[in-house]
Design a protein around this nucleic acid. Sequence first.
DNA 1: TATTCCGATAGTGAC
DNA 2: GTCACTATCGGAATGAG
Lengths: 282, 282
Amino acid sequence: MAEEIKVHSEEALTEEEIFNQDAPRKKLKVTNAFQQLMNPNKPKPKQQQKPERSTGGNPFKNRMGLGAYLDDPASFPASIVIAHDNEFVVIHDKFPKATVHTLILPRSSKCNLKHPFDAFDDPELLVKVKVQVEKVKSLVAAELQRKLGTYSEAERDRQAVLDGKVDLKPGQDLPKGRDWAKEIKVGVHAVPSMTHLHVHILSRDMHSESLKHRKHYNSFVTEFLVDIDDFPLPKDDPRRRTKEEGYLARDLCCWRCGKNFGAQFKQLKEHLDGEFDKWKRE
Amino acid sequence: MAEEIKVHSEEALTEEEIFNQDAPRKKLKVTNAFQQLMNPNKPKPKQQQKPERSTGGNPFKNRMGLGAYLDDPASFPASIVIAHDNEFVVIHDKFPKATVHTLILPRSSKCNLKHPFDAFDDPELLVKVKVQVEKVKSLVAAELQRKLGTYSEAERDRQAVLDGKVDLKPGQDLPKGRDWAKEIKVGVHAVPSMTHLHVHILSRDMHSESLKHRKHYNSFVTEFLVDIDDFPLPKDDPRRRTKEEGYLARDLCCWRCGKNFGAQFKQLKEHLDGEFDKWKRE
DNA sequence: TATTCCGATAGTGAC
DNA sequence: GTCACTATCGGAATGAG
Ligand SMILES: Nc1ncnc2c1ncn2[C@@H]1O[C@H](COP(=O)(O)O)[C@@H](O)[C@H]1O
Ligand SMILES: Nc1ncnc2c1ncn2[C@@H]1O[C@H](COP(=O)(O)O)[C@@H](O)[C@H]1O
Ligand SMILES: [Zn+2]
Ligand SMILES: [Zn+2]
């Protein structure tokens, strides 16, 4: 069977190289000190009054952070912004949860503040996104090859033939090498935290220092991650009603062998170290 | 009204001064490594098998720690063992929860492993304990005077007259100085953790570095501390059924002004710093 | 289900 | 509700020219 995605390129994930600065920042705050009165009732864990909220806050802070890429994608180096055109900005996730983790940001202001379930009810947008996804999957596959190809047994078998170190037997095909595209997941979070519409494209290994707690992990290995291929999402799909559901509170289970770690995140992390070593050698 | 307890002594809490060593320790362990099998079910937060339990363990470890004082009280310096005779050993709590915190340990092997509620059903023991309590309260009061007397306003008023710096008006009595005995609490925990029978005698300030969490605090400021004067405890006293009661999980409230800190232990601690400064100056 | 800091909570191990 | 250690869980701020 033919590979649909070419994954043997040696290119890294770069298209443009316009350097500039980080996301712009503004500040405007008035700080007032408030006296805390004797409190006869149980205080909620907030103990101080907040200073007055200032008017005219600043863009691209906190949950608005992805807006900076849409606002001026050319201002970022290629190590951050992978590619951009009038329709999309493609970036490296700043806190990658896997060896390769990128985001596709649709630029259209008509849709890019919508919830993905609503935004992708628009078939025109959805088809564009799916086309863009295929392109980015190729880039991510190439990046996996660049980072991990030397460990891969399948790649070594192929390379041995290419290098003339092993001769093909009569009628034998050139070994295919590793199909990295099969190791890539694409989808959106059922309840995103970042405001701007974005699609995750990431390798499935979940091996990353930025993966720091149970919700990080479960948000990519449970139905909380809604595959792009599931769109358009049926009106009655139960994931449309994901709110404070249990997906993220589920037991931690290894994506590769299924082993259950309960709530023991650190134990899972150590196990994932070992699974990563085996996975990259496949 | 006459003071019942003389608290103006300048003696520190010492009676004997036989030095020796800390509680004895022995070791005997066999360590085996066990292979952890793949676990299809949620593990409880224990992840490793324990090594085989060794036979003939060592006394006076962990919850048995108070036994060392009963076993050989003379082996401890006066800075640890305050006094001892055939009936009692009196010690400084190794992790004091207040400025002065001592323990009375009855030596009788007939009672000293009983729960205090059961042990104090014996009227003969109870009366001896109450007599001993009064002696130790005097020692603790003297220790408070030694540590904090210089800060006390009541003490300064008395001392000014004693030093001849202030003259008594006709018919005026010598100021009494501070009644430190009123600042002392005596009782047992409804559910002790240390195995050997012990009575707490401590100042009420709860100002100590060893006071580290909510249960420490609430175990001395709620009904979890059963006053020695409440014994003999009625058979139907609800505190006899203290097990998983809510005493220790209660909101943190300042013993001095009643302010409620909810679960905010650190906030309470900072508040207690201030209360201690005011309290010691009374 | 943004990150980061900080603190409260919870389980274990104690030779 | 021994202590000490680790880790998990949980709220609140996130900005000072
Ligand atoms: N400033 C940022 N730049 C790039 N990626 C970000 C930034 N802040 C957060 N992220 C990523 O954005 C994603 C948002 O996830 P979610 O909103 O749950 O779909 C996460 O994977 C974050 O790591
Ligand atoms: N080795 C020890 N020497 C002296 N006091 C101790 C020792 N270990 C624990 N304690 C104290 O013993 C008391 C036991 O409290 P409880 O069993 O809750 O009544 C606590 O106040 C501890 O600080
Ligand atoms: Zn596994
Ligand atoms: Zn107070």
